[in-house]
Amino acid sequence: MESSAYAAVGHKIYVLGGFVDGGFSSDVWVLDGRFHTWERGPSMQMARCGASAAVFGGKIYVAGGGGGPSSSHEGTHWVESFDPDIGLWKSVPCPEGVRNKWVSDCARVGGGVCVWVGETGFKLDPETKTWEDFENELPSGWNGQSCVVNGVLYCYDSCGRFKGFDEKNGTWKEVNGVVTDFPSYMSGARMVNLEEKLVVVWGESDLNGSVLHFEKRRMELQLAEIEVKKDRNGDFWGKVDWLGNVSFPDWILESCPLFYHCLSVSI
């Protein structure tokens, strides 16, 4: 579905909302990574398109993306949580700075779920359901392409640099030792935690995206596995364990030349 949010819990991938049949959707579809089968999941309480999602403590948190015709109570349900064990969505009360605002992204950071609204960041404590504003550099450096590895939030910026967030000092720091291994720009790069390694996937298209040549477009996917760590001085270091092309059947590359998302599941 177009403009859906995605989350992975265990061996399942959840596709949340999106733009369906000309409107926003509250539908949830679940892909079982073990058997490659789809099933309908419990619908969200609010129709969403372009929402953001994160996983914390085995629960899915989804924020924003409202405004559709069926979202009459969007303020109440602007942030929701889903417990896969009981199959139930619950509304999460949120502050004025988050409610009815465009949420750029959210992620698990430390002991909470972080939500980015424009240049302002908010952090939810899932246990107490309380929020706090960020008083550090996290919102300014976070561009939405991020993931958490060994409890540290990493991101990839528009200048082709990997950065880690130092929670203690509230600052972003560049990941040393990897910049020369990557191109200065990676089209649609996505990041994911795979067995506590930072895995980066990006596409390289051989055409300029012209609609007239859409049927002839091809895309190769590149993948890199990076070991990341933080030293005694609080600096971040990375070591590229593997870098190369990802092989896919021709029919996939020919029919789906655009790369949208990347998630890891346990099989």
Rank of each mutant, 00 (worst) to 15 (best):
S25Y: 03
G33Y: 00
V62K: 02
D125E: 12
Y14E: 08
W131T: 04
G110D: 12
M44A: 11
C114F: 15
G23R: 15
G10Y: 02
V98C: 06
F134M: 14
M46P: 00
L31C: 09
F35H: 14
P95Y: 07
W102R: 15
K123L: 12
Y6A: 06
G97E: 08
V55Y: 02
P84F: 00
S52E: 07
G33A: 15
H73W: 05
T76A: 12
G58K: 10
M44N: 06
T130R: 01
A54S: 14
M46Y: 00
K123Y: 04
G110E: 14
H36F: 10
G10I: 02
Y61K: 00
G97A: 12
G22S: 12
T120G: 03
G58F: 05
A7M: 07
E132A: 12
G64Y: 09
E127G: 00
S72R: 15
W116H: 15
K12F: 01
V113Y: 02
K129N: 05
L16M: 12
D125Q: 03
H11P: 07
N100V: 11
C49Q: 11
N136H: 04
G10A: 06
G97D: 07
A7Q: 09
A8C: 13
T76N: 04
L31R: 07
L88C: 09
V30H: 01
V117K: 03
R34M: 11
V20W: 11
V55L: 10
V28T: 14
G50I: 09
V92H: 01
G141H: 01
S72I: 14
A54N: 06
P69K: 15
D85Y: 07
V20L: 14
F122W: 12
T76R: 08
M46S: 02
E119P: 00
Y61G: 01
H73M: 14
V115Y: 01
S104R: 13
Y14H: 03
S104H: 08
G64N: 11
P126S: 10
K101Y: 03
Y6T: 10
V98D: 03
G111F: 09
V30M: 08
D125I: 00
V117N: 06
H11L: 05
A8Q: 07
V103E: 07
M44K: 10
I60E: 04
E96L: 04
F35P: 00
Y61C: 02
K101W: 03
S140M: 08
F24A: 11
C94G: 02
L88T: 04
G17S: 05
C49N: 10
T128E: 15
